[in-house]
């Protein structure tokens, strides 16, 4: 098996696991609960690679064509 990091691929934006504090401030900003965020499955290849657990939220830094850089948040689900 050839080993390589999926995160290097140009289609895949940066994923990182969010800390509790950061998550709280984001949820406060949008005035929502974390189950209202978009979801990502725990068997998603990227989630496997960064090792996020169910219930955690990942912060995705997208390269947007309109905004340059945009943040997106996904809740890890089963």
């Amino acid at each position: 098996m050839r080993k390589f990091s999926l995160l290097d691929h140009e289609l895949i934006p940066k994923h990182e696991i969010m800390s509790e504090d950061e998550l709280k401030s984001v949820l406060n900003q949008y005035k929502i609960g974390k189950e209202q965020l978009p979801k990502i499955k725990d068997d998603d290849p990227i989630i496997q690679e960064i090792g996020a657990q169910v219930g955690e939220v990942v912060k995705i830094t997208r390269n947007s064509q309109t905004a340059g850089e945009a943040y997106y948040y996904r809740l890890v689900i089963m």
Binding site: H9, I12, P13, I40, K41, D44, P45, I46, R62, Y72
Partner: peptide, 8 residues
């Protein structure tokens, strides 16, 4: 989707 995940 299968190889690179949902964001890709």
């Amino acid at each position: 989707y299968e190889v690179f995940g949902i964001e890709a």
